[in-house]
Amino acid sequence: MLKMHNIRKSYRTDTIETHALRDFSLEVNEGEFVSVTGPSGSGKTTFLNIAGLLETPTGGQYLLDGQEVGNLSDRERSHLRNEKIGFIFQGFNLIPDLSLFDNIDVPLRYRGFNAKERRRRIEKSLEQVGLSARAKHLPAQLSGGQQQRVAIARALAGEPRFLLADEPTGNLDSLMARQVMELLEFINQWGTTIVMVTHDPDLARRAHRNIQIVDGQVSDLRQNIAADEAAIA
């Protein structure tokens, strides 16, 4: 599903060059649920932005669903992002003056669906997150957990094959966090590939695989544990 090879990303000012990702290689298979952990500033969000086609790497190769995305135009990247990728953010990123219905409608508008198809998808996704009765409400009228469920509904409405979640439970209490996590697991069971950045080790453990990013480089914890166990034996 996702294949990154020797990805580099650096940010340059007049005097300083910062390497956010260095020789970053990662492969995520179709249907996997991968958690990404690592200390602050390690490059987790940069990885997520590159994976979500919001930023372009300085170097390296990135294949999304078998397609090399390095040379795509902005329009092509936007189209690919709209069609194949769903985003869930820590801060929910709902548009405050749009109703839930209209918030979920945003990606569908850019997809070019007709009104009937948009309505069908919006109603279905709201039903999936249990908020059908709140379609006309504004985000501010909902709790944090409900807002995140709306954000998930928005990501689901486009029926993406790949979901990127950036600390989706970071702003939620433990109960809400558990509910959101169960929802993500449920979505994953339907076949959607999920990559989730989190600081919560308990949540990270619930993923199929946990990778850690340190200083812009990736280490696969499961593989590391396996290697450690082999060494001990």
């Binding site: 329009r75 936007s78 992002r81």
Partner: peptide, 16 residues
């Protein structure tokens, strides 16, 4: 700009 960032993430191209 923040709203525009969300729209970009959800599939809006620069030209859109």
């Amino acid at each position: 700009a923040p709203e525009t960032g969300v729209r970009r993430a959800l599939g809006a191209s620069r030209s859109a």
